[in-house]
Design a protein around this nucleic acid. Structure first.
Lengths: 230, 230
DNA sequence: ACCACTAAATGAATGCCGTTCATTTAGAAT
DNA sequence: ATTCTAAATGAACGGCATTCATTTAGTGGT
């Protein structure tokens, strides 16, 4: 019923092939889906440093300026990529499983997706949901899960935002160098910190970022879980 | 005793004016402190978009290339600014007050400082502490507080990292537009989410970001507090 | 078959960016 | 006075996102 794109129904439209818009020159080498796919592929191969409008155009065999017929800025492309990536975040457990495990699954997959795309985090964190339909769909699935789990309505959004903030910050943490906490020549003047860092390195097969994420997530689950009333 | 800068004592040094280095041309219009102060001022006036090496040089009445005698890159300047800002984060309560209140004070001030400087978050989150002495000093104060509060050594760093991740993510949240969750024309297809957003807007004199930060922080405090043993 | 229309692609140009480098400047040391 | 050198200069470089006048090539109407 509700079409995802807000194109008003055209009474004159023939039973059109949706790939081709009526009454228009066809061909159309470029569209938003193709641009999004190419951008994702380019980012995967060259990283965000190599992700330029010129490089994107080259992978599409097109002049850079051609992109601007379908997208209004580079920021626009990043929004498209962000929204596409969000569809890889796993919300399936909110429909079936218990709340706590659903949040766990969601949070880990959310972090894993965006830890490989940290340059998008400033984009997501400030992006109106209207501009990102797949992201909105994720929020709906998560909200429904929280509602079903007995959260009071007015706490649902703050709880999700708090979890999301933790997830975004933790995504950065995944990309930090292993020796980020090596205090080097300053070790003598920071005894408590240095001792704690050494203790951490001794145990923990696990990666440091995973330990911290698990610890924080379980603490949040416990703390937020007490809000449930049903 | 422990000098913050690792300059080895020079036996030949005269009872020198520390502003002037021995045996060198004096004057020195530029130094790292001056660059840091000018950068901070420029960012305050023009934001991070207006913060360019050319603009920074102009506020210092100097050619852009002159900056590169004192810093090796723009990223370098950002690191200097980041470290300077960290000295504004309040860790005083870790010396005196109870653990829980100390973390609260620290977390709120940490978030407030960097919510005005979110472009630095990708810098901090991945920066080795060796390159940021004031940041290292903050970690020492916080670590000491956690140790004193009875945290097992191997949990101190993960707990701090988890809190920091939440703080960084929340700093972005502060800058989000007020209507970020307005689902607009998609409202009909996202009933749970839309209902939760409306409920949030009804109550809450407080700003949405503050509600979410408070909720998440208190949950983390409760959850992490159970790790204490002493 | 032709024309008028138009979305899409082009390629040149713009302005800004961070950074490099050969050169100059001006104090300090000898 | 001469030598040394850190610091500042100004011109240049390559790369960037974006713009715009122009061209291209299908389409619907006649």
């Amino acid at each position: 019923m509700t079409a995802p794109t807000s194109v008003p129904a055209d009474p004159h439209s023939p039973a059109a092939n949706p790939r081709r818009r009526v009454g228009r020159p066809a061909a159309a080498v470029l569209d938003q889906n193709g641009i999004t796919a190419a951008a994702l592929q380019l980012i995967g191969k060259s990283g965000y440093d190599g992700f330029t409008m010129a490089a994107l155009a080259r992978t599409l065999n097109v002049a850079p300026s051609a992109l601007y017929n379908h997208v209004s800025s580079k920021q626009d492309v990043l929004v498209l990529v962000q929204d596409h990536l969000t569809s890889f975040v796993d919300v399936s457990a909110f429909e079936t499983g218990p709340w706590e495990q659903a949040v766990r699954d969601w949070a880990w997959s959310y972090r894993d997706v965006f830890s490989k795309h940290t340059p998008l985090i400033p984009v997501i964190a400030v992006l109106p949901v209207t501009d990102a339909p797949k992201t909105l769909a994720m929020y709906e699935a998560v909200s429904a899960g929280f509602s079903r789990a007995g959260f009071p309505q007015e706490r649902i959004i703050p709880a999700i935002v708090a979890l999301e903030s933790f997830i975004f910050g933790s995504a950065y943490d995944v990309t930090a160098p292993a020796d980020i906490f090596d205090s080097g020549s300053m070790a003598a003047s920071t005894p408590h910190f240095t001792a704690a860092v050494e203790r951490l390195a001794e145990d923990s097969q696990e990666k440091a970022a995973d330990v911290a994420f698990s610890l924080g997530l379980e603490a949040l689950l416990a703390g937020l879980g007490t809000l449930r009333v049903a």
